[in-house]
Design a protein around this nucleic acid. Structure first.
Length: 591
DNA sequence: GTGAAGGGCCAC
DNA sequence: AAACGTGGCCCTTCAC
């Protein structure tokens, strides 16, 4: 690449370069670091590019004066990061934002993330890749060589090739931005793009903050489930080996209890009638008649607990902070939902034994806020069904209210069965449940299930109409959108009923699930702005739940801020249906 | 040994 | 005629 760049390694050069850069409305921004984890390595280079001119700032010389955070010579750089009028173009901005926040103390304001933009434009096309090299190729037809990316960024004298690589990675960003910005506009994705970009900094800070976990409490819990798993395994082996002839000769014939094949064979030998699959819900009906099935199900539960939520979990504790810094993917699903890994903090079991391990000291507080029935409220909003909306009007039990409407009885006369049917339908319709599956989970016959569903949709006619129209539109337009404009392109074979059916369910669900994600992201930005300068830190999010940690003395005011942020965010998208946010104060992640 | 695929199951 | 949406983690199995 023929971009002219300059390598800056002193305060005066930095000051002059930043004066020039501060006149640019759009700047490519990239960093080079010695590690992937800001708690482990060092930020070495910061690159800023207008597209025409690129500066590579080497921070190594500045480290001689001590902590970079308190180094006034870097102030011109910080002013650019924090400038509201200059758009900073980054690829996967969360990564650089964490380093800059942690090591330079700056928040990056006004982010344009080419990674997120590329994902939004791809609209769920899983074939498309979103690395910087892929995005550069796709949008600007330039080929990037990434071999220097993993080179040694700790050596005192960087090679010419390393510096040139660093410069180029920032210089490619402005032209990519031009293309992406045009596409976002053309596809009507500007609102959702802003939503995503404004969410980067809150997530970067959340990952830096980490989530507090009590190591010894966790160890106690996992010792308990490990023992339970061992005991269940032993008992299960005993029963299963009864059907194996070698047992008497060589003692117990051990099988691998985690192998569905081997377990299925052993069960067959014992004369257990085998269902289609070995899944718990299929095995459950057999548990009463066959103690071995009950034991197998018991084993699975404790084994899952002992492996997925065992000692391995503690390996994720960062020594520098003593906390868990999980990895959140902002567009983790095409619907816009987050995903989380290493570890996945969105799938911690509900049991108090687990949740109470996430706890804070006496002088700190967790503030836990969650949306009540947010997806159903979104569905009510989209459908405009007055009767369905009416069920949300009071603060009363929503499933009981719908049961009352569907079965035409007073709320206080709703039977447990009626409430349960209504509850399962309320959840099921969001996913496009059919009578067959509904019957399966309620124990109703196919025809009784159909009758109940007909009754449900007869009660909520507009809801029924909305779901049908939405499904038809998904198939005819081959796209679905959320309230913020997030788009999903559906791929299906119109001659294949199964494929069409799947696309329809997926496309009907996406605007609901995705609008919920839109609302959460908006809430995170509002929250981020309202807790700035306080002791409050965002520490976890789980789709419709937000967990904040703060000083004990600020617990009440933080709770109020959380309530306000979540309510205001939802009310930007949901106008006709009341929104309910529940906020709890606790020392542990337990409601 | 390594990696992909698939079963099963945790969360929402 | 119909078929419950999104993720990640652990395990086995199977191909290379």
């Amino acid at each position: 690449m023929d971009t002219y760049f300059e390598y800056v390694r002193n305060a005066n050069g930095l000051k002059i370069a930043c004066e020039e850069l501060s006149r640019e409305p759009f700047l490519g921004l990239d960093t080079e670091t010695s590690e992937l984890d800001p708690y482990k390595g060092e930020l070495r280079l910061v690159q800023l590019s207008s597209g025409r001119k690129t500066y590579v700032f080497d921070l190594l010389p500045f480290r001689a004066a001590g902590d970079l955070k308190s180094n006034g010579e870097l102030a011109p750089l910080r002013r650019i990061f924090e400038s509201e009028t200059q758009t900073k173009i980054l690829h996967n901005a969360k990564f650089d934002a964490k380093w800059i926040r942690h090591q330079l103390g700056s928040e990056i304001v006004n982010v344009f993330d080419t990674y997120l933009a590329s994902q939004l434009i791809a609209a769920g096309d899983s074939e498309r890749r979103h690395s910087l090299a892929d995005v550069a190729q796709y949008f600007t037809q330039t080929t990037l060589d990434k071999t220097e990316q993993v080179s040694d960024w700790t050596r005192e004298e960087l090679s010419a090739s390393q510096i040139e690589y660093a410069a180029r990675d920032a210089a490619v960003l402005p032209p990519i931005y031009e293309q992406l910005a045009a596409r976002l506009k053309a596809d009507d994705l500007e609102r959702v793009a802003r939503l995503e970009f404004e969410c980067v900094m809150p997530i970067a800070e959340m990952e830096l903050s980490g989530f507090a976990v009590d190591k010894s409490r966790w160890q106690t819990q996992f010792a308990r489930v490990t023992a339970a798993a061992a005991k269940a395994a032993d008992e299960l082996q005993d029963i299963l080996s009864a059907g194996v002839s070698q047992a008497s000769l060589f003692g117990r014939a051990e099988i691998n209890l985690d192998s569905q094949q081997q377990v299925a064979e052993a069960l067959r030998n014992l004369g257990v009638p085998m269902p289609e699959s070995m899944r718990a819900w299929q095995l459950q009906p057999l548990a009463e008649k066959y103690p071995v099935i009950a034991k197998l199900l018991e084993y699975r539960v404790v084994q899952k607990a002992a492996t997925s939520f065992g000692e391995n979990f503690l390996e994720f504790i960062e020594p520098a902070t003593g906390r868990i810094h999980a990895d959140f993917r902002q567009i983790g699903a095409p619907t816009g939902r987050f995903s989380c890994s290493n570890p996945n903090l969105q799938q911690i079991p509900h049991e108090t034994e687990y949740r109470s391990c996430f706890c804070v000291s006496e002088n700190r507080n967790l503030v836990i806020a969650d949306y009540s029935q947010i997806e159903l409220r979104i569905l009510a909003e989209f459908s405009g069904d007055e009767k369905f909306i009416e069920a949300f009007a009071s603060d009363a039990d929503f499933h009981r209210m719908t049961a009352s409407q569907v079965f035409n009885v007073k709320p206080e006369d709703v039977t447990d069965d009626q409430r349960s049917f209504a509850k399962r339908l309320n959840f099921g319709i969001v996913y496009g449940v059919g009578a067959s599956r509904f019957g399966m989970m309620t124990g109703l016959s196919q025809s009784d299930a159909e009758t109940t569903m007909r009754r449900y949709f007869a009660t909520y006619r507009k809801l029924d109409a909305y779901l049908r129209d939405s499904g038809n539109r998904v198939i005819s337009e081959r796209t679905a959108r959320t309230a913020s404009g997030r788009m999903l392109r559906l791929r299906f074979d119109e001659n294949d009923r199964q494929s069409v059916g799947a696309a329809r369910r997926y496309g009907v669900n996406m605007p609901i699930q995705g609008t919920s994600a839109d609302i959460l992201k908006r809430a995170l930005r509002l929250l981020h702005d309202s807790i700035r300068g306080t002791s409050a830190r965002l520490v976890n999010i789980v789709h419709d739940e937000v967990v904040v940690e703060c000083d004990e003395g600020e617990a009440e005011s933080t709770a109020e801020k959380l309530n306000k942020a979540l309510s205001a965010a939802a009310e930007e998208y949901v106008k006709k249906v009341p929104i309910r946010v529940d906020v709890n104060l606790s020392h542990k992640w337990d409601k």
